[in-house]
Design a protein around this nucleic acid. Sequence first.
DNA 1: CTCTATGCAAAATATTTGCAAGGGA
DNA 2: TCCCTTGCAAATATTTTGCATAGAG
Lengths: 137, 137
Amino acid sequence: MTITQQELSQRLENFRNKSRQEHLPLTPQKSAIFQAIASSCEHPNVSEIYQQVKSEFPNISLATVYNNLKKFESLGLIVEIPVPGEPSRYDAKLEIHSHAVDSAAGRVYDLENPQSLSLPKKLFGKTVKHANLIYYL
Amino acid sequence: MTITQQELSQRLENFRNKSRQEHLPLTPQKSAIFQAIASSCEHPNVSEIYQQVKSEFPNISLATVYNNLKKFESLGLIVEIPVPGEPSRYDAKLEIHSHAVDSAAGRVYDLENPQSLSLPKKLFGKTVKHANLIYYL
DNA sequence: CTCTATGCAAAATATTTGCAAGGGA
DNA sequence: TCCCTTGCAAATATTTTGCATAGAG
């Protein structure tokens, strides 16, 4: 499963814009980490991202990967997908959607949200920031 | 938020039945661990469960808690609720339902699934075992 | 030039495993 | 009796932090 060229460009541009907005230096390592997540539908976990980036930057530190993931999350560039019993995976698709977790195969799929699913705006007096419907296969 | 006496009895009976079915000895520690999860809507995480059980069994080991949680999960007695950025929480409510995660308050609420939400039986040729709709507040 | 990011190492946290002894069925 | 469970300690795995240096804006 690959993403369209157009979708990828959009994600990367969004990434660069956000970085500029926040006056954050745009290093090659950061770009590589973001691309490792954004350039496919693989929903990699930390060590997969680390391995991937390592092939381009053999000196990259795992701490750098962790630090950047945290930063990207706080900027709203990526979303963490927690998976029961395994390390979290990361997703750069920003539209609200669902996930199918196939633990046996160690994979996470993207799914459109069903038409029928209308999300509440508020719960317990608090704004619903995000919603994630996870199917376990 | 507390659960009804009836619901609790049901959960505990289910727990005892399952243990007997599987020919697993029913130790006081196991019961205490299960009850720590089943007797409220608190969705405790591992260390909260550990602290709770420790008050009754000061010698209990954290490893015992972990081992039993894994066992309970594989028996279908509890469900792990992964929470982004924090350790997982555990739920003994077995009906399919949703969760609202309030990270700021460190709480997870149970929610009925909306009527409108009809879950697919299969995805990608695999049976949907469980589905979890998580709202982030 | 200034400020953040990087890489390294160490610390902190979380989880799993091996094994001897104890206790339920 | 048999086998699972417990508790302890050690091993692994995961994530965070501090600090000196390098590099982006």
